[in-house]
Amino acid sequence: MIITATHYLVLSLIIFCLGLVGVMVRRNFITVLMSLELMFNAVNLNLIAFSYRLDDLAGQVLAIFVITVAAAEAAIGLGLIIALVRLKDTVSLDEADVMRS
């Protein structure tokens, strides 16, 4: 049995959707960010699968950029968490509602 790009795509899809559901249902800001990381990883998996399938290194380079952006996102997101805790003493996303009118 040969493992094709399709296998990787389906795996990537499963992880992506799990991350998506996690983003939507978790109350805790930290776990929401973790779910986001899952989604990033799914994207990377996708890129790598296509890079291999199409025999093109550009996919790997793109994945590196994705990792960089994910790192930036994590830094900003965690900074936000610290700010939120300082401001409202909570990590619950649904309590970060200053914009609510």
Partner: peptide, 11 residues
């Protein structure tokens, strides 16, 4: 998407 293994040449 065609099934099939890829290649590693360019990688």
């Amino acid at each position: 998407m065609a099934a099939g293994d890829g290649a590693v040449a360019a990688l």
